[in-house]
Amino acid sequence: MGGLRWIQLLRVERPRWVQAACYLASVGLLLGLWQYVGSDFGVLFAPLTTTLQELVTLTANGTIGPAMAVSGQIYVLTLGIDLVAGVGVGLALARLRWFAASFEPYVFILYAAPTVALVPVAFAVFGFGVTAQVVIAVLISVFTIVFSVAEGARSIPRIYLDVAATYGSTEAQLWRDVILPYVMPFLMTGVRQAIPMALVGTLVAEFFLAANGVSGLLIEGVTEFQAAKVLAVTVLVSALAIVLVGVGELVERLLVPWRHTIDG
């Protein structure tokens, strides 16, 4: 019985500040550990303070800015194409029978196969430029939107379509007033996931095609054995990724406030 009461004690709803304290403690623990381990690890690791100094230096001497601009260009192009292509292919998969019947297996193969392996193909066809990088980045990040939109468009209840048909709506009205609004939350779920995935795609494309942006700095750091530089850029990218995940959630919450709880 005593054991049971102890368990119940654990299950008691804790105030928010305990939760917040746990979060802070975990971040603090990590940073402290980093500083401690980094101080006497030799050339392959750098303590937190050195890393942050390096980040400031890299920003001040104009290394980070241009690299971010290069990567940013790929990122923005990728996300834009993801949106257009993802919505187009997703709707087509769901509402055009012939398209789904003939292309669905190939869409799935492209999704499940390791996209990195297609880098040489993209290079052979498009060369070393931004085009090839964006193609690879899109192939990595577009499928969350495709599958989400397709699932949304497939799950429109029959009765909505029947009502629209009863009231004699035209094809265009049907799309504008029924299908697109219904698909919108599904689209935003896909977009929320695509926002960080496009960053993954950007980095992969840079690593393998032309290491010119942020990834270029990472590879430079590794080949020159500059641990502080590698860590500084990694921290920057991680912070960026976390911010982007937050932006994705915010966008979804702002545009479809009625449905941010349905999936996790």
Binding site: L44, F45, P196, L199, V200, L203, V204, F207, S215, L218, I219, G221, V222, F225, A227, V230, L231, V233, T234, V237, S238, A241, I242, V245
Partner: peptide
């Protein structure tokens, strides 16, 4: 969670370094 949502490929250089 933050490691999960991070582009893991960015960690590959550090792993190679270590």
């Amino acid at each position: 969670r933050s490691l999960y949502s991070m582009p893991l490929i960015a960690l590959v250089p550090i792993m190679v370094l270590w």
